[in-house]
Simulated scan of single mutants.
Amino acid sequence: MNFPLMRDGLRPRDTRRKRLFATCAISLTTLLVAPQVLAQEKVTLRVASFMPPQGFLNQAIVIPFLDRVVADSKGTLEYKWFPGGTLGRAPAEQLKLVQEGTADVAIVLPAYTPGAFDAYDVTQLPGVAGNTRAASVGAWRALEAGQIPTPDKVKVLGLVTTASNVLHMKKPLSKVADLAGQKVRAAGALQMDAMNNLGGAAVGNIRGPEIAEALSRNLLDGVLMDWIGIKEFRVDRTTSHHVDVDFGRVAIILPINAQRYASLPEAAKAAFAKHGGLAYAQTGGKAFDDAVSEYRSSYLKEKDHTAINFPASDSARIRTAFDTVVNNWVKEQPGRDKLLETFRKGAAEEK
């Protein structure tokens, strides 16, 4: 019996059928494997915050930023949020968490590492920046120029400053001279110098959570803090007299572990580039400015709260006191004059 031409013992029809089955199997395998491949490509970042879950910085700035980045990452990125010191409670530990990889990203205050990041203190100089958005942009421009250092083993995704620290007092003030002998809590050497130059008695070494008790026990007559912080630290319960004079701001950075960043998909890096850097400074700074306006207006609707500016006759005295702080800071280290120039120029972009 004669048979049609066969290959590997199969008739041509059998061969075509085998190829069809193989093609279908490959297609099915692709459909089944593709979601797994996509899932493997999505990176989950561990983001740490030592601040309470409902803290302003968390809710108004950092989480919205991360959500914008994730939305533009083309499905390559997600994050897991660890607030309230879950990965490390001490504020001074946060940078180390990122450098060692315990967290991929964290909220870090360079001021909590004294001596290592003194250049960030440019944001604390009193009376230099017009608002928080301006101060944040000025600080970012200085970091971008390399005049503010990036800590080892990290990449700084964004930088923002707190709102301006102003006076919150238990008793009313009408002029600068009324500060004489008043015990005012100040954070850091620059705030203390500025307060002392105006005739007050600056008090340091009182942690944020301890301020309310110190006020209630008459260990303090007032505090330098922003309008948002007085609510979060319950300072508003004892200080109802406010003076809007700018004693400077504190820089806050959002670093990511450098190796972790290098391993991210390109789409994730592009999303961070889009929403970080200058955009983060502008958006975060505006969030602080808007919140100050809202908080301040809300307090002043309450009958017990008042807010003033020192009279124009005190302007020269305030300017002299603040200029002394600025000039002394500049003279302490070479290059600070250039840093201050960059900061001021960057801040002026936002006028």
Rank of each mutant, 00 (worst) to 15 (best):
D236E: 06
R13P: 05
R234S: 09
P35C: 10
D289C: 10
L220S: 06
F21G: 12
G115A: 11
G276F: 00
V156W: 01
A142M: 08
L95N: 02
E349T: 12
W81N: 10
P209G: 12
V47C: 05
Q54A: 15
V223G: 01
S313N: 05
V235F: 00
V160F: 04
D14A: 09
F82T: 00
G204A: 14
G335K: 05
V108D: 00
L224F: 09
W81H: 08
L87Y: 04
F82I: 01
E78P: 02
H242F: 09
A163T: 06
C24V: 13
K175H: 02
M6S: 13
A186G: 06
G181R: 11
F117V: 13
K80V: 06
L340F: 13
A281L: 05
I230S: 03
V37H: 08
D121R: 01
V47K: 04
K286I: 11
T150P: 05
A268H: 01
K269A: 06
A258N: 04
V128T: 03
V108C: 03
L31I: 12
V223H: 01
Q124D: 07
F82S: 00
T320R: 14
D323R: 14
S73V: 02
T324F: 01
A214M: 05
D118N: 09
D244A: 06
K338R: 15
L66S: 01
Y295W: 14
F65R: 00
Y120E: 03
P334L: 02
N328K: 11
E144W: 13
P151T: 03
K351A: 10
S297G: 15
I308M: 11
S216E: 12
I308K: 09
A119L: 10
A270F: 07
F233D: 11
F82P: 01
L339N: 12
R336N: 02
F272E: 01
K345A: 07
P151H: 03
L38P: 04
T86M: 09
G199M: 10
T342F: 05
K183I: 07
G199S: 08
K351F: 07
I148Q: 01
D244M: 09
A134H: 02
Y112P: 10
L179P: 03
T30A: 13
T162M: 03
S27V: 13
W227L: 09
K96T: 15
R319A: 14
A312D: 00
S298I: 09
V160P: 04
A273H: 13
Y120V: 00
A273T: 14
D104F: 07
V176A: 02
P311E: 07
T150G: 08
A291M: 04
T239Y: 07
I148G: 01
V70M: 07
E210N: 12
K18E: 09
V235C: 02
S240P: 11
S293D: 12
Y79T: 15
R16M: 09
R207S: 15
F247K: 04
A139P: 04
P151K: 05
Q59A: 10
D289S: 11
V70G: 08
